[in-house]
Nucleic acid binder design. Structure first.
Ligand SMILES: [Mn+2]
Ligand SMILES: [Mn+2]
Ligand SMILES: [Zn+2]
Ligand SMILES: [Zn+2]
Lengths: 141, 141
DNA sequence: CCTTTATTGATAACGGTTCTCAATAGTAAC
DNA sequence: GTTACTATTGAGAACCGTTATCAATAAAGG
């Protein structure tokens, strides 16, 4: 039995992490790491870009925030509020407005399709892109 | 009226394009541009990497082949055979085996969700990932 | 053939993301 | 408060898939 007890430190909370969370809470659309870094800078919250990348990734892993890939393949993050469970997104490709949606319909469908084909441990990611009412209006003057 | 007739050349078929198609026809899973380039090399079909990227992209635009993004964000291509219309994929994340699936269920659901929220010009991409029967068997010895 | 110009390919450039590693700063123990 | 430990940070390099460059090549049509 060693004199030194085993260490128990698991996690440390830092100024940078709170800053990133603060920005996330103020968003109602998905944003990239770089955009979030820019928003931090604008708020005079100095956080290194690498830290932003790392922190967002970690938060997404823990499912504290949501992550999606834009059409162009960029990773985007958002804190989807109230909602703690499995859900999907309806995203305006013009302004980024994001609406959280859920429905047993696709859940059932994907499960059925997977089962019919002998697949197990299935996961899916369904995000719908379109033009929101507002943006539609703007483009037709 | 000009002396020179207007040119009508739209497209030229090349050795490289046929080579790429040849490889595509031999696949039953999605492959990246780099993988396809490697397969070409293995077959002693010399095609530049840039050409592979360009050609796959062009074919995907014309919807002659299918394109998806892997979980890691890499662009993958496949010739999905017989099927010319809108469809989805059930993909084994172990071996890449890909099964083409369709169903009005999600089509209706996405349309409904979009309409309910005032979105127009909606598009969706639904790919389901899981473990196929074969790979499941292998992992349980 | 000859002309026109789409296509190719080696390579550089690009953009998002991850890695490196020394400096910084939470945390628990003293 | 001080100390010891080490998670976390940050500036920049490295990475990796992809796209842009641009001179050389080679289809298509006459
Ligand atoms: Mn779902
Ligand atoms: Mn569909
Ligand atoms: Zn919008
Ligand atoms: Zn499999």
């Amino acid at each position: 039995m060693p004199l030194k007890e085993e260490k128990k430190i698991v996690e440390r909370s830092t100024r940078q992490q709170s800053a990133i969370l603060e920005v996330l809470y103020g968003l109602d659309e998905f944003r990239s790491a770089q955009e979030i870094h820019a928003l931090l800078t604008k708020k005079n919250l100095k956080v290194g870009l690498a830290t932003v990348y790392r922190t967002l990734q970690k938060m997404a892993e823990k499912e504290d925030i949501d992550a999606i890939k834009s059409i162009e393949g960029e990773r985007l993050y958002r804190h989807c509020g109230q909602n703690d469970g499995h859900h999907h997104h309806l995203i305006c490709s013009k302004c980024g407005l994001t609406i959280t949606v859920e429905g047993p319909a696709i859940e059932n469908w994907t499960d059925k399709v997977a089962k019919e084909n002998g697949f197990s441990e299935v996961s899916h990611k369904v995000d719908i892109y379109g033009i929101c009412k507002n943006c539609k209006k703007k483009s037709k003057p």
